[in-house]
Design a binder for these strands. Structure first.
Length: 390
RNA sequence: GGGCAGAUUCCAGAGCGGCCAAAUGGACCAGACUGUAAAUCUGGUGGCUUUGCCUUCGAAGGUUCGAAUCCUUCUCUGCCCA
């Protein structure tokens, strides 16, 4: 495929491409490009938000290029301030290592391991002398530049603390680009500053500056904030089919269109013509298929319709084993793990969330007599099948 | 280093010395309505051996019959001055 055609593919779905001409020239050389992507192993779960960028990387790989996947094990000790309104808690080395490992396993659900170099940035960052930090990093950016960034200026205005440490984060990320001699770096739009700084750093080291490719940020399930683990508004790629399906179904119609646009090749125009619920089910199934294999989406859909449309019990219920047949309602809810505490259990019962074999019981103190295969339901999605131990 | 302000339950934020497990909003949970959508409405959101008891308002002490509220010291944060 010629360089121009490649560029067209690369540009699809991209918000901004800095250094387009340079990129074209590099593509014309015909040698595989080194495409950098950095991941912060502070939260080990990869979710749909990440997959926007990962899919782009996958495209690069299909075009024959090499991915340099950087695990920011060193930078994770600081925490990326991008888009955040508060200082992140630093992680311990052990935590970071564990996270990094699970992270990698998940990434290869999407990326081709053959065409991926994995690098830990502690490999070079931890070896820097203080002098290097001053000369190579700190001297190359100004406070004004930093404060120009939304996240910092906002915090500064609001009197929310900003650690000097956090100013170092973009610098380290930029330095990574120098180390791995990246031709391209891919990231979310919130990364723009960090990515562009990489270009400056490379120029100073007499390298060709990397092309910078920013991708849209995927909104989380709430439809407002960006998808992230800490906000708990995400769909993780390793989640159970029924959870992926259920979460996808719970998004608003508007957000569904956004997900279609950012996560699939399906034309949004076509989707708009469909019944929203049907479209949403298709999206949900598509996502399940993607992470659990062909056919699993269909299965998840059937389960979903069984449980929620027809209000039947799911096929696979957690079993609650007990030797007592007689229970106080509230205790049963708590003991079976359907509520975090006894008080919560009692509350749920009072609010009418508790059903046993479809029969609602509202008094937490009521005695219920259990039999084998009775089904306890708490709320919309918690089911327990009863087994009486003799 | 000096001065000032502040630290409250998941978050933001209110809290006269008793009526404070602590207003209000957000978030979340449950119920109703639905397309488990959104919107809307209702209720709820520390724990427990639950009409009462226990733990909580940065930390530790103290005053008081009684403290989130007053005093002392400490820790942390912001602002101003150097």
């Amino acid at each position: 495929m010629n360089a121009k055609e490649q560029l067209e593919i690369i540009k699809q779905g991209v918000v901004e491409l800095h250094g387009e001409e340079e990129l074209l020239k590099k593509l014309e050389k015909g040698t595989p490009l080194r495409v950098k992507y950095g991941a912060d192993p502070s939260a080990p779960d990869i979710h749909l938000g990440h997959t926007v960028a990962l899919n782009k990387l996958r495209e690069f790989q299909e075009l024959g290029h090499q991915i340099v996947f950087i695990i920011g094990d060193f930078t994770a000790m600081i925490g990326d301030p991008s888009g955040r309104s508060e200082t992140r808690k630093p992680l311990t080395t052990t935590q970071v290592q564990e996270n990094a490992k699970t992270y990698q396993d998940q990434v290869f659900k999407i990326l081709d391991p053959e065409k991926t170099d994995v690098a830990y940035n502690s490999g070079w960052l931890s070896k820097l002398m203080f002098e290097d930090v001053i000369v190579k990093l700190a001297s190359r950016s100004t406070v004004a530049q930093m404060l120009e960034r939304d996240d910092f200026s906002k915090r500064y205005k609001e009197g929310v603390p900003i650690s000097v440490l956090e100013f170092l984060y973009p610098l380290m990320q930029a330095y990574d680009s120098v180390e791995v001699q990246a031709d391209v770096e891919v990231g979310g739009t919130d990364q723009t500053f960090n990515l562009l700084l990489g270009r400056d750093f490379q120029r100073e080291e007499n390298q060709e500056p990397q092309a910078v490719l920013t991708l849209p940020l995927l909104e989380g399930l709430d439809g407002v904030q960006k998808m992230s683990k800490s906000l708990n508004n995400y769909i993780g790629v390793t989640e159970e089919p029924k959870d992926i399906f259920g979460k996808a179904m719970s998004v608003s119609d508007e957000l569904m269109l956004r997900y279609y646009a950012l996560l699939t090749d399906v034309s949004v125009e076509a989707v708009k013509k469909e019944h929203p619920m049907e479209a949403k089910k298709k999206l949900a199934a598509l996502l399940v298929d993607r992470f659990h294999g062909q056919g699993s989406g269909e299965e998840a859909r059937n389960q979903f319709e069984q449980v929620f449309s027809r209000r039947e019990n799911p096929d696979d219920m957690e079993v609650f084993e007990t030797s007592d047949a007689e229970w106080v309602a509230g205790n049963l809810v708590a003991s079976s793990g359907c509520a975090a505490s006894k008080s919560e259990a009692n509350r749920l019962v009072q609010q009418g969330a508790f059903r046993i074999n479809s029969q609602q019981i509202k008094d937490p103190k009521q005695i219920v007599n259990l039999q084998n295969d009775d089904v306890v339901k708490v709320g919309k999605r918690q089911f327990r099948k009863i087994k009486i131990k003799k």
